[in-house]
């Protein structure tokens, strides 16, 4: 039996997906990227192999994607995460027309065509507003963990308006909101709204087509997803492991690579 590996080395997490020839996911893993992305790639691969219960030698081909894609020495091919997210989302939800990926360092909106092909895409500018990093900075300011943000924001009955677009400005705004004794949940909801507004303007630039699939770590945050659904006026597909969508796309490309080679 042959297997195909996709590895996505992101700014925050490094993820792997292993597919078999029937295009079934037989193993995956998510680990922290940390300081050394080559080591993270090794680690995530080992874990995925354990889950798939196969030997490393069984991997026929590997495609790497994500920021650290150049740090994966054993990959035959390197492809950007934009193409991979499109493919991965299309595989999971074939009605996908738009992918919204909010990652650690950047966020992107991708228009997806037949077969998971990228038709168009846009990414945030240099600034961190509208990314996972933005939430991380704010969570630290508010002394709550990143995982708690979603549930806390859903508990808010009202929300505070965060008017600044810039992370640095927003940070000082949050400081003064805390000083004014605004409830943490309401501030968090305001922060989520601010991210959603940023994403919304990127979505509008491309226009929505078909179903929307969300990938990346922030997709786990129910608060952001529900605000975004409200804004888009349509439900959003979110996989139970939204972080592996990029690696899944890479694995699909690895499979395609092996097929065209033979």
């Amino acid at each position: 039996m042959k297997y195909f590996l996709g590895i996505d080395v992101g700014a925050l997490s490094t993820n792997a997906v292993i597919l078999d020839v029937r295009r079934e996911i037989v193993g995956y893993s998510i680990v922290q990227t940390g300081a050394n992305s080559t080591e993270a790639a090794e680690e995530t691969l080992e874990k995925a192999l354990v889950m798939a219960n196969i030997d490393r030698a069984k991997i026929t081909s590997t495609v790497a994607t994500g920021y650290g894609r150049i740090s994966v020495p054993f990959a035959e091919k390197k492809v950007t995460e934009i193409s991979c997210h499109a493919l991965g989302a299309y595989y999971l939800y074939p009605d996908t027309g738009t992918v919204i990926d909010i990652g650690g360092q950047d966020s992107k909106v991708i228009r997806v065509g037949d077969g998971g092909k990228v038709l168009d895409f846009t990414m945030n500018d240099k600034c961190a507003a509208g990314t996972g990093r933005f939430l991380e900075v704010m969570a630290a300011k508010l002394r709550v963990s990143l995982d708690e943000l979603g549930d806390l924001s859903l508990q808010a009955s009202q929300e505070v308006q965060i008017s600044s677009v810039c992370t640095v400005f927003a940070e000082s705004e949050v400081v003064s909101l805390v000083a004014q004794n605004h409830p943490t949940e309401e501030i968090i909801r305001g922060l989520h709204r601010s991210i959603v507004n940023r994403i919304w303007s990127m979505v509008k630039m491309l226009g929505i087509r078909g179903a929307v699939t969300m990938s990346g770590g922030v997709a786990k945050n129910r608060g952001v997803v529900s605000l975004l659904e409200e804004r888009l006026e349509q439900p959003i597909h979110v996989h139970t492991e939204p972080q592996i969508v990029g690696a899944l796309g890479a694995a699909l490309l690895a499979l395609r690579l092996a097929q065209t080679a033979t």
């Binding site: 008017s163 600044s164 677009v165 810039c166 400005f169 000082s172 705004e173 400081v175 003064s176």
Partner: peptide
């Protein structure tokens, strides 16, 4: 555009 106004600064 009030979004670039920093109250604190």
């Amino acid at each position: 555009d009030s979004r670039v106004f920093s109250e604190e600064q």
